[in-house]
């Protein structure tokens, strides 16, 4: 079963309620699906389409536009070596080749045991820390080849609990208790907010 499970559905509903138009929740829901399975399955896309009242083709259209969504299984650890210009200047290609040799796979591939996938990616906004990489979107800065070896070993040895499995993007989610929610105005027929008329002295 790779439709959204009950827990994901519960979160999904919370998320949907934060947007005036349901379809806005599409990307967050795809993240949820990816979190559940490690990748986005066709069944999950169909399920999301159902939930949001759009067609599966529309879900796929959006899903396939964004690089973070994987539509086939990837490794438990997605290693993204940055090859943006700053990292390029400081040896990103070397690092990437080293990573290929170490993991025994080419860029874009997954190790046979399903542990690692490797990708060369565009700038990840850590340019002063070049060369850098992300494992499941957790940064590793100024990575030397031996740093890389160490990192891989630590992951294999289960010593990197700071890196969650692929898909779980953020460990902290936004929660809004219903009492605190200001409330979503409908896209049509909303009125001017009251405070705009205030004279500013009443607080």
């Amino acid at each position: 079963m790779s439709r959204l499970n009950e827990e994901s559905l519960r979160i999904a509903n919370e998320i949907i309620n934060r947007y005036p138009i349901k379809k806005s929740a599409l990307i967050p829901l795809l993240h949820l699906a990816q979190e559940q399975e490690g990748w986005v399955t066709d069944q999950a896309m169909r399920h999301i389409a159902e939930i949001l009242g759009v067609t599966p083709a529309e879900v796929l259209g959006t899903c396939s536009f964004y690089e973070m969504f994987k539509r086939s299984p990837v490794g438990e650890y997605q290693v993204n070596v940055c090859h943006g210009i700053s990292c390029h200047l400081l040896g990103a290609e070397n690092l990437l080749h080293h990573a290929e040799d170490t993991l025994g796979i080419k860029e874009g591939e997954t190790t046979q045991d399903g542990k690692f996938s490797l990708e060369g990616v565009e700038c990840i906004a850590a340019c002063t820390e070049a060369p850098c990489l992300q494992v499941n979107y957790r940064y590793q800065n100024k990575v030397t080849t031996s740093d890389f070896n160490e990192l891989v070993q630590e992951i294999i040895d289960g010593e990197r609990s700071d890196i969650p499995k692929h898909g779980s993007l953020a460990k902290v989610r936004q929660n809004i208790s219903p009492e605190r929610l200001a409330g979503i105005e409908p896209v049509e027929h909303a009125e001017q907010p009251e405070w705009l008329n205030r004279n500013g002295q009443d607080s």
């Binding site: 993240h31 605190r180 409330g183 607080s203």
Partner: peptide, 23 residues
């Protein structure tokens, strides 16, 4: 953030939205 900010009638939600990889 949210309803009646600091006890005033000023209310607004801030919704965190995740991108997914596209410059």
């Amino acid at each position: 953030v949210g309803k009646n900010i600091l006890g005033t009638e000023f209310s607004v939600d801030i919704i965190l939205h995740w991108g997914a990889g596209a410059y």
